[in-house]
Design a binder for these strands. Structure first.
Lengths: 191, 191
DNA sequence: GTCTATAATAGGATAGAC
DNA sequence: GTCTATCCTATTATAGAC
């Protein structure tokens, strides 16, 4: 409890707790235990209290997501390669299907009002980033939008399925299907 | 606050609150306001307290889901008709994409331990019910399992997407795609 | 920068009047 | 069957020592 931890470590551990417990389920006691700090020490790092902690966790997750999932989409490789790197990033970011998505978790209860805008923007941004790659790959823009949205839906749904079933196969299977489905000749698939 | 309500009404309102707030976010105060009762009055209906209320809500939702979504799958109509009735049931049950799924919501935080088993079983049951219809329609059993799971993933993912984006189009679009995707490649195509 | 101690409030639950 | 009043605990937050 008395070891000095850097901000990065603390924030990373907060992400884990919020993912598992949700915003309202993550009490300061649970967060403190997860972060390896006393409750009071939190207020040195996050003067705004729990809302501050959640925001730090969200922004940390957001940056990690950008690096792992979004950045590869903007690279200079071929569309298929960039999409595959996004898939690899998703696998890492969501720990093979074991981790929940903060977009899911923070759109409920007390966190809803705090993250409404950011979450809507994040979803739109991700969809747009995928669609751009597809358009570059020669897919009709409207179809690209649909396929991009389908990927997000499949990933979010697979995470819920994994959490609910206690299995990780659904996530792995969805990941395997993403690149083929996105670049498929002309037909869109639901999942 | 002083109007007498029957159990059905109270439980139905609890479902709404838990869907919106999650288990940990739904305080007795919020639940009571949502149900139109004083906090103390709850303990007449649910002697076990909040866990009892959540269980009643879950079982109520479960029964409604069975009636709206699962029952049509077991009917005597053609596979395509039964699947379409399931889709119609999903639209009603999830209020066109405006309502969250308790499987998502109750697999986080304090509710996780309470509903772990039920949730895993419910997901497996639903998948199996869909797959049986597909097998009857002439689809290979392993492929039927995959497609059935894809539907659940797409529905859960669409609900997360709708909650996060504030739009309902993703849910409607997913629903429209379900029957075609499930029966794709089958010999008897509906014109 | 972390701790102990403590305050203030909200949450869950109960007793008993009506 | 619902209410007011109350209790106990957990939760959030702060003060101040180290």
């Amino acid at each position: 409890m008395n070891q000095r931890l850097n901000s990065r470590t603390i924030t990373g551990r907060l992400v884990e707790v919020f993912r598992r417990e949700g915003f309202d389920g993550a009490s300061l006691t649970v967060l403190a235990r997860g972060a390896g700090l006393g409750r009071a020490s939190f207020y040195h790092h996050f003067p705004g209290g729990k809302a501050d902690m959640a925001r730090a966790a969200y922004e940390r997750a957001s940056r990690d997501f950008t690096r792992a999932v979004l950045a590869p989409l903007a690279g200079s490789a071929t569309p298929a390669e960039r999409l595959q790197r996004m898939v690899n990033g998703l696998d890492a970011f969501y720990d093979g299907g074991r981790g929940s998505c903060l977009i899911d978790v923070f759109s409920l209860g007390g966190a809803r009002a705090l993250f409404r805008t950011e979450i809507a923007e994040a979803l739109a941004y991700w969809a747009h980033a995928i669609a751009r790659v597809l358009i570059e790959a020669g897919i009709d823009p409207a179809e690209a939008d649909r396929r991009a949205e389908n990927v997000i839906i499949a990933v979010e749904g697979a995470l819920v399925m994994c959490r609910g079933s206690g299995r990780t196969e659904p996530f792995r299977r969805v990941l395997e299907g993403i690149v083929p489905a996105l670049l498929e000749g002309r037909r869109a698939r639901v999942a």
